[in-house]
Amino acid sequence: MMNANVAQGRMATATDEAAAEPILRVRNLKRHFDVSPPWLNRVLERKPRQFLRAVDGIDFEIKKGETFGLVGESGCGKSTAARLAVGLYAPSSGSIEFEGVDIGPLSRKQMAPLRSRMQMIFQDPYASFNPRWRVSKIIAEPIRVFGLLKTAAEVDARVAELLTQVGLMPVDGDKYPHEFSGGQRQRISIARALASNPDFIVCDEPTSALDVSVQAQILNLMRDLQRQYRLTYMFISHDLAVVFHISDRVGVMYLGAMVEQAPSAELLRNPRHPYTRMLLDAIPDLDMSGRARTPVSGEVPSPISPPSGCTFHPRCPHANARCTSERPATIATDGGGQVACHAVEEGRI
């Protein structure tokens, strides 16, 4: 049923289909963390094993050259999904295809050539830099790890080129990370990510620690690089306006599930899932229209013991008996999106 609907959803965009093949295809992907109390406590206090379902069966595709954005409240599984997508976490189940190849069963060695084509950028680049390395060494690391260039002169030239591409100067390579501002450090991490000529870059809150002015510089740079190298991005931010600005398609996660996804303009214009509506409604309005918004109710429940049925039901104004018992299936929408909600399927909303 799922696949039939996905296919149907894609019909609408059949024209771009040939032009843009999915670079990443994720099916029923799950990652559960074992958060059980220590063995002794389990035995003595008769506590059961416990699993936290950080990502609990998500499906999505990202087309080459596009940006797929992920939004959702803190703890809903965005970062876990991102790490799964580049192979930093092994899935508990489900599949991830990169250019049609299922990367799940690949050995480390088989995975190596793919690794160089996927990179990740984080919120706090400083944490991922060795503070005692000069910037040139930091940027050259992927080149060295993947053995991409032979001579030192070639590496130096490439590093200088990368620094220029991200708006820094070749002489900056001689400095240390602490000599740079937050925005410049993010430029360095982008240069490092580009060093291995990747096709796919996962960006987890890359601008969340930056001022809006610096954020604009970084977002503009990322867009230019995307156009220039036909990069594919997966982009995560808790700032919805940023995600909608940069993304072609946006997915909304709630407690490890993908509750809705659609082309960004469509999702903004015509959100279907009650959770998407709640999130969009909570964004403060720059137009000062003073609209009365429905108050956001409740907190995200614990992912260790999520609610039954549709996990959003305790907070949902449209929940009914079916919602509390049956997990909604994902269906295609007219606008080229997908949504998992009984009320939408039944035509109630």
Partner: peptide
């Protein structure tokens, strides 16, 4: 500049 640098929904 500050106002313009902020992405606006829609």
């Amino acid at each position: 500049g500050l106002m313009g640098s902020i992405p606006k929904l829609g």
